[in-house]
Design a protein around this nucleic acid. Sequence first.
RNA 1: GCGCCUGUGGUGAAAUUGGUAGACACGUCAGACUUAGGAUCUGAUGCCUCACGGUGUGUAGGUUCGAGUCCUAUCAGGCGCACCA
Length: 945
Amino acid sequence: MEYNFREIEKKWQKYWVEHHTYKVTERKDRKKFYVLNMFPYPSGAGLHVGHPLGYIASDIYARYKRLQGFNVLNPMGYDAYGLPAEQYAIQTGQHPAITTTANINRYREQLDKIGFSFDWDREVRTCDPSYYHWTQWAFQKMFNSYYCNERKQARPIEELIDKLGHTGTTGLNVACSEELHLTAEEWNAMTERQQQETLMNYRIAYIGETIVNWCPKLGTVLANDEVVDGVSERGGYPVIQKKMRQWCLRVSAYAQRLLDGLETIDWTDSLKETQRNWIGRSEGTEVRFKLKDSDKEFTIFTTRADTMFGVTFMVLAPESELVQQVTTPQQKSEVDAYVDATKKRTERERIADRKVTGVFSGSYAVNPFTGENIPVWISDYVLAGYGTGAIMAVPAHDSRDYAFARHFNLPIIPLIEGCDVSEESFDAKEGIVTNSPRADVKPYIDFSLNGLTVKEAIAATKKYVQEHHLGRVKVNYRLRDAIFSRQRYWGEPFPVYYKDNMPYMIPEECLPLELPQVSKFLPTESGEPPLGHATKWAWDTINRCVTDNSQIDNNTVFPLELNTMPGFAGSSAYYLRYMDPKNDKALVSKDADEYWRNVDLYVGGTEHATGHLIYSRFWNKFLYDYGYSCTEEPFQKLINQGMIQGRSNFVYRIKETNTFVSLNLKDQYETTPLHVDVNIVSGDILDIEAFRNWRPEYKDAEFILENGKYICGWAIEKMSKSMFNVVNPDMIVEKFGADTLRLYEMFLGPVEQSKPWDTNGIDGCHRFLKKFWALFYDRNGNYLPSEEPAGKDSLKSLHKLIKKVTEDIEAFSYNTSISAFMICVNELSQQKCHNKEILHTLVILIAPFAPHVAEELWHTLSEQESVCDAQWPSYNEEYLTEDTVRMSISFNGKTRFTMDFTADADNKTIEQEVLANEQTAKYLEGKQIVKIIIVPKRIVNIVLK
RNA sequence: GCGCCUGUGGUGAAAUUGGUAGACACGUCAGACUUAGGAUCUGAUGCCUCACGGUGUGUAGGUUCGAGUCCUAUCAGGCGCACCA
């Protein structure tokens, strides 16, 4: 009987659905294991062969854990909101919901063919109101919270309001946008509107006037992680800086916890490092500088407090609010011109063209350490968003300050003994400090750093600054608050209405606030986001949900929030929702949360390192603060699956002809390489007939062949339609079967590694399955498994396999475990071993990798219907004497075989070994040797007492 | 510039973590069965050499009885951050 994978796979996929094989419930009697894949955005192109890589890897682990007796949660869903569906809607008028549903159905169809053990009853879709109910709910919680730095957690905003009413901002240690100084009286005297505005300074979800990445082409703002090299991640359109009122999440409040949490989780070092970079913690000092002849002062941030004596000028960011304050009337026109010019530049231009520019403000600051008057400049090399937007410039020890000083001819004072700053600055944080203060000037204060190392000098200066109230020690983070508004239609609507121009939350019982239908997906005529088309919806919502709506001005055109939430909103807590997806009372019930706790194994791409993986850690920590999530870190172990690149094929057309020349002859002609569909190429040999039929212009193509074949060139590129290198998993499944696809994807190499897809190698895996099958059925369809006892060799092979596969799965080293299978099956077929128990064991072992064929064969061996209910085999080694070992294998509560082995007689005597290598012999002299294993020429192992 | 990672046959890759380098698979070559082969089976296959043998894990050193593995330097490629004070 042949290995008829088509029939087998169809049969068992049907069986799994009918028997709800993969349905999972909270079972307190069994240990849980939560496996999760980053859910996909269902794009119109469907799945290519790279997408399932991570799903297969995690499915193998999930199935393995299940066989080991764990209660495994392995869900799947869709990140369904997003730009492409909306862009498509703008072009075609097709509602995004329709395209999204169609795409989801297509994805599902493709996924189902691969035989995953997902519990589809737990599917979530971010665009489903019953799902985004909880996205909106979490947002409201964040709005109604502030972050307490002392308790290091989010707290209800009422607490803060209470404090402000009693003690004002005195003694307040909370996360905020800017430090305010208010007395209780001042707070109490405020109007409601003023109070609400003040609270925005503290809320975790707040409206902030911030500089945002505005993408004119997409008509929306973008988060920092959505901008790459100054252009939008999606589409690659230019991005400019713009000040806008936007919803923001105070992610920065959690910076330290996000950093600390990395120590407790099992992620790769490189990913942790990426997150550390992104959070960008830097310890430094804030120092106040007074403005000369004025009572104004401003604060700078520096990590090099030791260089206070080398400050020769100050620089403000052009966007800084201080600019207007320090600019003297004489300099005003020049400064305004400069500030305007910087505003017009896009992020990209600023990066591309790093010319030294700047303008003098006219003012001077007083150095608190030297008493010197220092000119204050304005330049775009200082960023408004980092630190205080102002720096003290020490050209001798900072390359940027150095370039600036050279350009504008400002003084440079070296502060490290023996450093040479005639050509470039000395940036290293090492050496002995000098010139602090300089010997030739009268000390201004009683403080010297001379003779100290840089490290010591920093510490001494910090101490001095603190003690003399010149500033304070400060930790700065690069991590910015997340901009949470998008001027888009296809996203979660904010459950927010406006009264007196201030936002208020729609009552919780009115959630979810459903996304309305709109007539057009483009901005309204007045330039508002597309949601602005739904005015009726907006007013209906007000009338339905807001009882006291008398204060809402009837002249307001649109009383609700016009923006929608960004892509990361829906993906930030989905792993919690999977635990209890149908709950309409809570995001997740306490019971379900406490049972599943957090994700034990999370599989996904690195591209989310600074986006989703930061946001969802933040989101989870927020929920943790309120006890809605019982674990602080959502993803305990994370595996980054590599990308599957495409392997493109080329044909070479001789210029201005319709003749194509084979790869190795192409140098004799002048040719143009053209991408050719990889699906009509096999082993780099072009199917000429298929090529002629591929496109009308090639109908009459001529070929110059080598050895009667047309050989194509190849290159590794991104898998994409335009390069004709997309390989579709359905095609592979159709041709070789899902089990072969699963095996091959894993056999390709380590899961974490990026690698090109090359269909050529797939035969090996397919052949393996056929050989596997041949252990059960011979060519004539005779069923082979029998009670005939297994030979020692067979048992040894199997024993080796169990050990290897178990270790390899634990280490996610699937490629090597498949190799082990191949070796074992080869050995068994050579040994003509058809022992039932051995095959029994083998089937369980293969089940995580090739579940369909395992089910089919299991069925013939066992009373249990599904191999999913079996138990992972365990092996036991018991030393009877020093060189006799008793090996046994058991599963499903039964010991299957026991056999005794005596150590190999191959091990040679010590005398022989010593002869093998003179140096080794010398080394071993006088040592107590337990055992030496040797093979011809070399020593393999020496065991010393 | 700072930080992290990776360099092994024609190709994808293994190597019990310091102990026979190249397992397993693709490809290639030879053979068998076949009307045929993009089917199946058997054998060979790092490089140099007819062979004996030599040589070999980016390069150069070092530690060690022993190094693909550890250390130092260097080169190449990849990733992250980047005018972050």
